[in-house]
Design a protein around this nucleic acid. Structure first.
Length: 262
DNA sequence: CAAATTTGACCCCC
DNA sequence: GGGGGTCAAATTTG
């Protein structure tokens, strides 16, 4: 699927350039959403080997009972978000903390508090950013399957990058969503980064870069950004893609006179 | 008292 | 072997 965006330069019903720009941005976001939905499903399809604790060859050294019977999150979906708060709309339970080499701040390991009563497998890692900005870098791994949900999640900033452990962030885009914030419970302003550290295919990574390149850079203050990933909020996901995924499209009527080729 | 957090031990994988 | 992720007992918190 092509990753470039193309728009016609006029709209008979527009009331000014600001309005037009607003519409364009909305369309871009819509396309972005759809592209990300596709990426998400692709990655889901790719994911394998989760829950491999039942592995027979667990004749681990040293009388391993339950201990040691845990899986690494290899090939799980992962996203990174940057936020001034650790709140993200879900409730989490901390299960570990580690000092990380070359990092001033320890990394906290949290899993969804609904892990046991709803079998939710979402986990996240939170680490304060070293640059003194008081921001937290959060890596979300796995998908929420629970209905655990709160209302005050932070704003989002989408970033693309790889290897955030090394502090390398290639680029960052701030995107303002102009409409229908009611439908998206995720609050404004955090940062979300498609994570590529796992075994995400290079195709997917390239698509991401293409998308972001296509966006250029939006310097507007952060408003609402669609997380487009189940990690931040599975309910988010349902609202956006499951329940009324086509609403935006209908709102904007991708007709011939105002084309948006994606 | 139950739920959440802390923390050291343990294990996987590079 | 060491860094990083997870476990689970101990401790704290509400």
């Amino acid at each position: 699927m092509p990753t470039s965006f193309r728009f016609s330069s006029h709209n008979p019903s527009s009331q000014g350039t600001a309005h037009l720009a607003s519409e364009l941005i909305d369309k871009i976001l819509t396309s972005f959403d759809q592209a990300l939905a596709v990426l998400t499903s692709l990655e889901s399809a790719q994911s394998h080997n989760e829950d491999s604790c039942i592995d027979s060859s667990k004749t681990a050294p040293g009388s391993m009972g339950k201990r040691g019977c845990y899986k690494r999150k290899r090939s799980a979906q992962a996203w990174t978000a940057v936020s001034a708060t650790m709140e993200d709309g879900h409730t989490w339970r901390k299960y570990g903390q580690k000092e990380i080499l070359n990092s001033k701040h320890p990394r906290s390991y949290l899993r969804c508090s609904r892990k046991y009563d709803q079998g939710c497998r979402a986990i996240k890692q939170v680490q304060k950013i070293d640059d003194g900005s008081q921001m937290y870098r959060t890596t979300y791994i796995g998908t929420h399957t629970c209905t655990n949900y709160a209302v005050n999640a932070p704003p989002l900033i989408i970033t693309n990058s790889e290897s955030w452990e090394t502090g390398a962030v290639d680029s960052e885009i701030l995107i303002k969503r102009h409409h229908d914030q009611r439908s998206d419970p995720t609050p404004t302003g955090a940062a979300l980064k498609q994570e590529t550290k796992e075994e995400t295919s290079s195709d997917v990574t390239d698509m991401w870069k293409d998308l972001i390149d296509g966006f250029e850079y939006c310097s507007e203050p952060v408003g609402m950004v669609h997380p487009s990933c189940a990690e931040l909020s599975c309910r988010n996901f349902e609202l956006e893609f499951g329940i009324k995924p086509m609403e935006f499209e209908n709102d904007f009527g991708f007709d011939d006179s105002d084309e948006c080729v994606v």
